[in-house]
Design a protein around this nucleic acid. Structure first.
Length: 282
DNA sequence: GGAAGGGGAGGTCAGCTTAC
DNA sequence: GTAAGCTGACCTCCCCTTCC
């Protein structure tokens, strides 16, 4: 493939992936998506097949049922509502798609999840004490430039390559300053999404307008309140921290905190060896 | 000449409706 | 929650044209 074409395609893929992520509850017909990036429906299929390693239709269906898992973790939402929230017009279609993907019905999955929570509550006091957590508020939206990695979280080589590419891109655009923040966005829960499909965005904040090209994209983190978990030392304890946070949902719920969306990010500060994991909250 | 992109045809399957 | 039947959207293949 020609270099220029590849660069254009990567931008189109970035746009479509971000569009799907933000519009899962809407009809995502092929013609609508094709219009988003000004290509024919056939060309859209070709481009996405080659970059996603799965058809766009499979990708959308997978995103929908995986997103539904997150909504199931909130109380007082029934299956009909969840089906609607992830783009299904009726719960039957949602149930069918869910069972095809996970092998069990949504109702069975929710029951299993509630049982796990009950087990967690019994032992929660010890766990709570091991987590250092604070609430912070970001006063301004954060403009970010990102490069996407799809694959197992924490794989050294692709992550190092991505961060190096990002820094190089920023340097070329004279966009690095002392105030630059390096942020990792984790969009998928590896306990739900197969590791080879997990999406991680290596991001850096920018305080001037930059037009992303090729594999780089731009994204805005909304201002608001966050629960911030802090990991001191190297990254070897990061996985354990994420595990603790994921089973700590009930702890946060009992403190009046609910999840709006499963977008967490790590604020990376290599000099101080501190990683902050942010969970957006209401 | 090779890459990119479109057209057509036939098969497949997701989604919807309905019934239980 | 499950199953059957129907419909339309999607996928795949092959071939052709256009573009660089």
């Amino acid at each position: 493939m020609r270099r220029n074409t590849e660069s254009i395609y990567q931008q189109k893929v970035n746009h479509i992936i971000d569009y799907i992520s933000a519009n899962l509850y809407n009809p995502l017909k092929l013609d609508i998506l094709a219009r988003q990036i000004h290509v024919s429906q056939r060309q859209l299929l070709r481009i996405m097949n080659s970059y996603l390693d799965e058809s766009i239709y499979t990708y959308i269906a997978r995103q929908r049922v995986e997103r539904s898992i997150l909504y199931m973790q909130a109380k007082d939402i029934n299956l009909s509502k969840i089906a609607e929230m992830v783009g299904y017009n009726n719960p039957q279609s949602f149930s069918k798609a869910f069972k095809k993907h996970f092998g069990i019905s949504p109702r069975a999955y929710m029951n299993t999840f509630q049982d796990r929570l009950k087990g967690y509550v019994k032992n929660s006091d010890n766990l709570i004490n091991t987590l250092e957590c604070e609430i912070c508020e970001e006063k301004e939206d954060l403009e970010l430039i990102y490069i996407r990695i799809i694959g197992k979280y924490g794989e050294d080589k692709p992550y190092e390559t991505a961060w190096n590419k990002l820094v190089c891109f920023l340097k070329n655009n004279q966009a690095i300053s002392n105030e630059t923040r390096y942020i990792g966005l984790s969009y998928d829960n590896p306990n739900v999404t197969q590791s080879e499909y997990c999406r991680f965005y290596a991001c850096a904040s920018v305080n001037k307008k930059i037009t992303p090209t090729g594999e780089f994209g731009s994204i805005k983190l909304q201002k608001g309140k966050f629960a911030v978990y802090i990991l001191k030392g190297n990254y070897s304890g990061l996985q354990e921290l994420y595990n603790n946070i994921s089973i700590n949902f009930d702890h946060t719920l009992r403190h009046g905190i609910t999840f709006e969306e499963y977008i967490s990010y790590s604020d990376i500060n290599k000099e101080k060896q501190i990683t902050k994991v942010y969970i957006p909250i209401k």
